[in-house]
Design a protein around this nucleic acid. Structure first.
Lengths: 111, 111
DNA sequence: CAGCATCCTTTGAGATACTG
DNA sequence: CAGTATCTCAAAGGATGCTG
């Protein structure tokens, strides 16, 4: 029976889910990227231009992470010049309506 | 007509709202704190115990920030020992159902 | 009890040059 | 075009001791 024994506090199972969700959406650019892709197919250069303030390194890193997390699909076309397209996975699409709700928070605190 | 002229890209007004929302919810602890307060009244010590991994400095700082942002109300009781209680403001309460939706994202990527 | 002050470590992010 | 490699920096977060 340690001090942190589970019986001490009824651990809120939601806290675990928050952690899972934060793995997906936390960071300065995640929400922007996921919402910009939306239901479309986006090329790297499109995203780069839509987010002028992001650096190439960060964008490439975030895209790679989101692919690894199963949020984005990455499709490479063997063309010259190269073309790479990103779309939401089925799981990624499930998050879309939720992320759009987050925009409401912006509205709430804007006026 | 500069390169960044607004006419060049139909700037997504949602991007602005994301920025507003991120001011409220971004960071490692914001979601936890807001959801833990929920519809209840929480003391500093309660929050501190519910989030064993947070340091006192960070918790105090986040609470102060959330009060400044208009998310939390802070009520001090002139007692000994001191008692400080936090509740959501009316705006803060408006975010609750949205933040609860975010838990769904955790579920989506958990299985 | 509910913090603040100080110091320190870690992480995220930006700039730039370069490559398949 | 779509990235990588390096370097650098700022900010977030953590540990600890102290106080009204």
């Amino acid at each position: 029976m340690t001090k942190n024994d589970q019986h001490d506090l009824p651990v809120n199972p939601d806290l675990v889910l928050i952690g899972q969700a934060l793995k997906i959406i936390s960071g300065k650019w995640r929400l922007y990227i996921i919402l910009l892709v939306g239901d479309e197919t986006r090329r790297y250069s499109e995203l780069n231009e839509s987010l002028p303030a992001i650096s190439e390194k960060v964008l490439a890193g975030e895209l790679k992470a989101l692919v690894a997390l199963g949020v984005l699909d990455r499709k490479v076309y063997a063309e010259i010049p190269p073309r790479v397209e990103y779309t939401l996975t089925s799981k990624g699409r499930l998050t879309l309506p939720i992320l759009k709700q987050i925009l409401e928070i912006g509205r709430i605190f804007n006026y």
